[in-house]
Amino acid sequence: MNDKLRSETWDVAIIGGGPAGLSAAITLKKAGINNIVVLDRENEAGGVPRHCGHPPFGIREFGRILTGPAYAKRIAETARQLNIEIALQSSVTSLKPEGKLSILRPEGEIELQAKRVLIATGTRETPRSARFVSGGRPLGICNTGALQAMVYLKNTIPFKRPVVIGTEIVSFSALFTCKRAGIKPVALLEEESKASVFWPIQYSAGILGVSLYRQTGIVEILGKERVTGVRVSDGNGQERLIECDGVLFTGKFVPEAGLVHMSHLKSDPATGAPILDQYGRCSDKAYYAAGNIIKNPVKVAGTCWQNGKIAATKIEKDLAGQLD
């Protein structure tokens, strides 16, 4: 694989084999652009849906409701059937001017040259540390993404009675995942007076028997080896202790854009996403970005799929010299 990746100048290299990257690849291939490669650092293509072991995925793309893993399989399979080159275990480590990429693979480090690059590396939730939450560093603190990967990919759990922080759409996934894994959250906290997505959260919290506390923020995490509790405060400064064995921080998505920040590309300090022109191009015109890396707030897979398609159309025009 290394020789192959190195040997050609690719028309398009796509970083990230999630919904956005794969949809772009499929669109390009169908438009007759054959010389494309999808690079993903994981062992499997499909992106985050690989570990979202629950519906709904795929309504827009396939007209039916799938679970995340089934959806991930399906989009990766679609790409493979079109003979799209997917290089797995390929971590892109730096973006250089004019479409030159450094890639680390178990076989060794290589450089790859592409006429155009699409960055589709997705988003992740803000971890505890970047939220400046007080307390020690016991085990049992994680994000929804990590919880889902543990539950759906590795059949293990990090806690049994966590406090869940946040009420975004993803918090719904978090509660659902807990239910599937036999985890019983003891409380769901929302700092604001209203939940971010009130209806489904209220509903699923109800089903799970989890109490939702509005206007309640986490003040401190307690515990040495493992979490033993959290101190929380309501809007009036009233504090109390909730016993628990974990803290699940959900949402507050940030772009997975470390690559961009370390590179010559310009990014928006407020969101961390790369700055794009009207065609979806970065400050170096060899680079495009699509999918959740540029979506704030974060979008569902179907929207990212759609967004990848649009980016592909622009790249196709660009390669044909029809953009500027």
């Binding site: 990967a149 543990m150 539950v151 590795k154 293990t156 759990i157 990090p158 049994k160 894994a181």
Partner: peptide, 25 residues
């Protein structure tokens, strides 16, 4: 640990007194 805790739990299973994964899902 957003991306790798699950794999790390697997790789360290049975190694430590206080493990990352504490039971079956």
């Amino acid at each position: 640990g957003f991306y790798c805790s699950a794999r790390l739990a697997e790789l360290t299973e049975g190694k430590f007194e206080t493990p990352l994964g504490i039971g079956d899902a």
